[in-house]
């Protein structure tokens, strides 16, 4: 009995505790540097955001906010904020280019895909393990950073230089940041798998990510059904529009007919008044997205991105099961 034990420990495993086994060990060992970097970025980024949050709080307190109006945008345009926003916006692209694109392409280019898949594990299992670790890393990183940034932004949103509907806030808070990280990384992995070359797939992934950012920016306003608000032509803008994203604006007659906003923008006031009378215009009509729609829009957007990730993942797994690496 004891002889068997001795034999096992001598011929068997390396000494020391083994937290991970099998493919998990291999994937973590192979991507140790990348995973540690993501971890460090997440931790340091969170600390940085917490520090900036505290600093902004102090500055605002010193300025007497929120009782006193601020001399905009003195507070909001601190370098700390713009740096944070830039870094967070770049995070999904960086993860896609430096973690996603080389994930499979690196193994294909260096032949280590051949090494691993000729051991006793199927390439399907190997790939699934790699994908899970990579997805977990980017989702955790994106979620933690997004949570910290949301926590910073929410109470101070009125002093932030960007409104909620724009990329710097919308894409970096709530579920959108982790979903963008996940989708772009999955795209990078797929591009890498198809191109089989690290450098080429990193370049293509970068271009693809840039295109996605543009398309995503255009898509944002369509993530929730817009609302219409009608108020008198000479009335003040209702308070509920203060934090809204105005999509379009018309002038309308009493019977509900809408005219272009510039219809009666004439050179003289008399001419404008005559125009207004002629068309019977009595109302301002605004098409807008309300701030209360933001969570719904973010979750819808994140849902679309996760669905696209699922499609890419299925394609990747199907492709690998059909044709060898």
């Amino acid at each position: 009995m004891s002889a068997t034990l001795t034999e096992t420990s001598r011929t068997g495993r390396a000494p020391g505790p083994r937290l991970l086994r099998g493919l998990n060990w291999l994937v973590v060992r192979q991507h140790r540097a990348a995973l540690l970097t993501v971890l460090a970025v997440t931790v340091l980024g969170s600390i940085w955001i917490a520090y900036q949050h505290g600093r902004m709080g102090q500055t605002l307190e010193a300025a007497g906010w929120p009782e006193k109006e601020l001399a905009q945008p003195a507070v909001a345009s601190t370098t700390g904020l713009s740096l944070t926003v830039t870094a967070l916006s770049a995070l999904p692209v960086i993860l896609a280019v430096f973690l996603g694109a080389p994930l499979i392409a690196g193994d294909q280019e260096h032949g280590t895909a051949q090494l691993v898949t000729t051991q006793s594990v199927s390439r399907h299992r190997w790939l699934t393990t790699k994908l899970l670790w990579c997805y977990a890393a980017v989702v955790v990183s994106g979620t933690v950073l997004s949570a910290f940034f949301t926590w910073w932004w929410k109470p101070y949103r009125s002093v932030f230089s960007s409104p909620w509907s724009e990329g710097p806030v919308f894409d970096n808070t709530g579920p959108v940041l982790p979903a963008l990280c996940l989708f772009l990384t999955a795209a990078g992995i797929t591009i890498g798998l198809l191109l089989r070359r690290v450098l080429a797939s990193m370049l293509v992934t970068f271009v693809f990510a840039a295109i996605v950012e543009v398309v995503w920016g255009e898509m944002r306003a369509y993530l929730a059904p817009s609302r219409m608000l009608t108020y008198p032509l000479d009335g003040d803008m209702p308070a509920r529009l203060n934090e809204s994203l105005e999509l379009d604006r018309w002038i309308g007659s009493a019977d509900g007919h809408l005219y272009g906003w510039g219809l009666c923008a004439k050179t003289t006031e008399a001419a404008s008044d005559a125009c207004i009378k002629e068309h019977g215009i009595v109302n301002n009509v605004v098409e807008y997205l309300g701030y209360d729609q933001m969570p719904a829009m973010q979750w819808t957007g994140a849902g679309i991105l996760v669905a696209a990730t699922a499609v890419l993942t299925v394609f990747t797994l199907w492709r690998v099961s059909r044709s060898p690496l």
Partner: peptide, 12 residues
């Protein structure tokens, strides 16, 4: 260790 982790009948 890679060999031992990925192969059931590994002979270290």
């Amino acid at each position: 260790r890679l060999g031992s982790e990925l192969n059931p009948g590994w002979d270290m």
